[in-house]
Design a protein around this nucleic acid. Structure first.
Lengths: 245, 245
DNA sequence: CTAGACCACTTGTCTGACAAGCGGTCAAGG
DNA sequence: CCTTGACCGCTTGTCAGACAAGTGGTCTAG
């Protein structure tokens, strides 16, 4: 193939045998993760990349597609003349979630195992949060308050629930936790479909969840790590048992 | 754009505004994760896909590139006429690792946080393994034995180390654990570069690691979950402290 | 000063072309 | 009969050129 016009006859490094489009995508990836081009920046147009890299447009396009699929570049999912942009962190996170989800599906990981993994992580997170009790917990407080309000609708409740768990994850003092837990949560959600919508008695269920959240937060604030872990374990298990049947 | 020649003028579903290449990739993805085409199967040639789907070759190529980047299809990373194949589980796992790695890098997650996350997971895994003590532990035994042999070289040692940790993860009785732990391990490895190669006194270090592994396994086999967790925590922390400085 | 026409540029797609490698066929030679 | 080597078709990787359609800025007429 015309992959490498100027390849030496004895160049056997596997690197050199990779398709150009892959090499180009790696080069761009490097520029992105190294921070050389900031998040949210527009990529150069395909023509510019073509000239700058000395490859054809189809090659550039394939490289960009690869980056989009990896979540490093966002914006190509709609037909328009808008240039793709360097991914935001959120986009990357959701790409990671998709990847994990793919792997879980192909490996036929049962939903229960995912939930148990989440229990382990969430338990560890609250325990760490309890031993630190840092300022980020005020956000958790606000989320619990929002959930306890009477007139809240399901969508708002769900958003507050998300904020609560994110706040706990952030309070663990470990940047990897919120990331992995977010990925895991959305992988579980994708497994579940949207089974949670058909809750028979929504207001009652929401009130119960709000109470559980309040109890967890209280334990964390009092520094009772073990207790918080038990509560969160029961909470998460019950939540998915409710939704998954 | 010529994205959808036959699009109704009033078709405003966002779905329909996505580029064809994306739609095609989603269609193929569906066929793969649903198991309609088994893992390891060869994909049809580009020409066949072109005819079957009624789109141009470049579109098909972009779609396949997307799937490759997502790890759902493997084999296109080398220049040859070999057709891409439906991904194996291992390929998917490594794609997930890349995705997590990307997210971690862009979020500037420090290495220490990754290591702590691994400590949490590995600790939970051995505790679960200790309470089950299932048959898979014989593999862990074999790995420890291999590591303890005198004439082992670094590469073999590393492979045995990997087998040991995988065996523990498998013994936890939760299919999600080995997957996530593998992803995490390789993300850490990629962060570390290959700093582990320049160990000053390799044989001594390897002997120490082998002893630690043996102690962990012993605790698991005796059902001492807490003890196993402590040992594995110290082991993982020490390992990366050694390599990371 | 604003509204609408207009134009340059961009992305998405298709088509046609060519190089290079892999696999099977098939005949010549041992 | 089996091996060996040339050969041909198919496949992938890449490029170049073409066109449709959408976006955004400019420029003119009112």
């Amino acid at each position: 193939m015309a992959a490498r016009k100027n390849a030496s006859k004895f160049d056997l490094r596997p690197e050199a045998r990779a398709p150009l489009s892959l090499l180009v995508s790696r080069q761009l990836r490097q520029a992105i993760v190294s921070g050389k081009v900031g998040t949210g920046t527009e990529l150069p147009s395909e023509k510019e990349l073509t000239q700058e890299l000395g490859v054809g447009r189809s090659t550039v396009r394939e490289a960009v597609r690869i980056l989009q699929a990896q979540g490093l570049v966002s914006g190509g999912d709609t037909v328009s003349t808008k240039r793709p942009r360097v991914a935001t962190e959120a986009a990357l996170r959701s790409a990671a979630a998709v990847a994990i989800d793919n792997a879980m599906r192909l490996a036929q990981v049962p939903l229960d195992d995912l939930v148990e993994l989440r229990v382990v992580l969430e338990g560890a997170a609250v325990e760490m949060a309890a031993s630190r009790r840092d300022g980020l917990l005020s956000e958790a407080r606000a989320a619990v308050d929002a959930m306890s309000e009477s007139g809240i609708d399901i969508e708002q409740f769900r958003a507050a629930d998300l904020r609560f768990h994110e706040a706990l994850a952030n309070s663990a003092g470990n940047a990897a936790f919120p990331l992995v837990m977010g990925v895991l949560r959305s992988a579980i959600g994708s497994h579940l479909g949207e089974a949670l919508d058909r809750e028979p008695d929504a207001p009652k269920a929401m009130a119960k969840l709000a109470r559980e959240h309040g109890a967890i937060l209280k334990a964390v604030l009092e520094g009772k790590g073990k207790r918080a872990r038990e509560l969160v374990t029961a909470h998460v298990r019950a939540f998915y048992r409710r939704g998954a049947q």
